[in-house]
Amino acid sequence: MALKKAILAAALCTGFLAAFPLFSLIGFIQTESLAAASDFQKAAPMDKGPHVLPPF
């Protein structure tokens, strides 16, 4: 019984430890892509045309 408990505890711990870096990595990726998206928005280029638009 004690052995079972020890194995279970070890499995939970290692699972948790493995999951921790994985989740933090997902968060990192999400932040990165958000930053990239807002950068892209800022850098959205202007189309040179041809445009025949009404006056400004």
Partner: peptide
Amino acid sequence: YQKARLLTLQDR
């Protein structure tokens, strides 16, 4: 109007 005009130029 001015905003719509500029966004047209940005293809948005």
